[in-house]
């Protein structure tokens, strides 16, 4: 019983990210509205980012900022005391690029609305076939 509990505590984070990824993927595949599809894409992105960040977490470790002060004696830094900064760096830039791509996606949406006067995928398809 104790083993099962430990197993769940050590793994539920990954299950959470898989569930979020499923929500985003479902919205991208099934939803017909383009804004809903873009929201699904963003949820998918944040799920992947959550996965990377939870890889970087470390038990009994502190934030990746080394304790310092003026006039402190220089002491050795041990890797086990600090969280893994590498996934944080990769994901920090990924978030900013995500908002930039979001801007481009919304610009395309506005362009499509100007052309077809609708955001529903099936109505746009009907208009395209009708021509």
């Amino acid at each position: 019983m104790d083993g099962l509990f430990d197993f769940i505590v050590s793994k539920y984070n990954y299950w959470g990210y898989v569930v979020l990824m499923m929500i985003g993927m479902y919205a991208m595949i099934v939803k017909k509205n383009l804004v809903k599809k873009i929201i699904g894409m963003n949820i998918f992105q944040t799920a992947i980012i959550l996965f990377y960040v939870s890889i970087g977490a470390k038990r009994d470790a502190t934030l990746p900022i080394i304790a310092h002060g003026h006039g402190d004696a220089h002491h050795a830094v041990h890797a086990v005391d600090y969280m893994n900064p590498l996934p944080h760096v990769l994901m920090l830039t990924a978030i900013v690029v995500a908002v930039a791509t979001l801007g481009v996606a919304l610009a395309l949406t506005i362009k499509i609305y100007k052309q077809y006067n609708t955001l529903e995928e099936d109505e746009i398809n009907a208009r395209l076939r009708g021509r």
Partner: peptide, 29 residues
């Protein structure tokens, strides 16, 4: 989870600017 820099970025980007982008796009469509 201790990713303070990532959380800071998401608070300013995700909750701030991208919501404004969405509202602007919905306003224009």
């Amino acid at each position: 989870m201790g990713a303070v820099d990532v959380a800071f970025t998401e608070a300013s980007v995700g909750a701030g600017v991208s919501t404004v982008f969405f509202v602007a796009a919905v306003f224009r469509t």
